[in-house]
């Protein structure tokens, strides 16, 4: 179920990227797309009845059933890179707004 939901979230992001002309909305759509993708990757690693992959005093043996830690590590990387891309995109958007006085790409072309 969560896999279907995350794919739908990705599709919402793609729709936003295709249909919007406002730069800030485009960045938001990119983030929605990315969140959907991250949820999907995490859901691949889920094991039924699996524990959180951390050894603690309650689940102390590595022989117990844990969920897959590798997708979590990859998503950690992906989230951080997403933050970097968003920061850079927002800085570009701010620069565009300083120059043209608008966030709309159609209005920018006219000037």
């Amino acid at each position: 179920m969560i896999q279907y939901f995350s794919i739908v979230l990705m599709l919402v992001g793609i729709y936003g990227l295709l249909s919007q002309r406002n730069v800030i909305k485009l960045i938001a759509a990119l983030n929605i797309f990315e969140i959907g993708l991250n949820l999907f990757i995490v859901s691949i690693g889920f094991v039924k009845d699996g524990l959180v992959p951390i050894l603690t005093s309650n689940n102390e043996s590595s022989a117990m059933l844990y969920v897959d830690p590798l997708p979590h590590a990859l998503v950690l990387t992906s989230i951080v890179i997403g933050v970097g891309v968003t920061a850079l995109a927002l800085a570009l958007a701010k620069k565009m707004h300083d120059k043209y006085g608008t966030y709309d790409m159609d209005e920018m072309g006219g000037k």
Binding site: I2, Q3, I44, G45, F46, V47, K48, D68, L70
Partner: peptide, 13 residues
């Protein structure tokens, strides 16, 4: 693979 139906022995994890 169906959601949650994963065999970790097949994976490098």
């Amino acid at each position: 693979n169906e959601y949650g139906n994963v065999n970790l022995d097949d994976r490098v994890s």
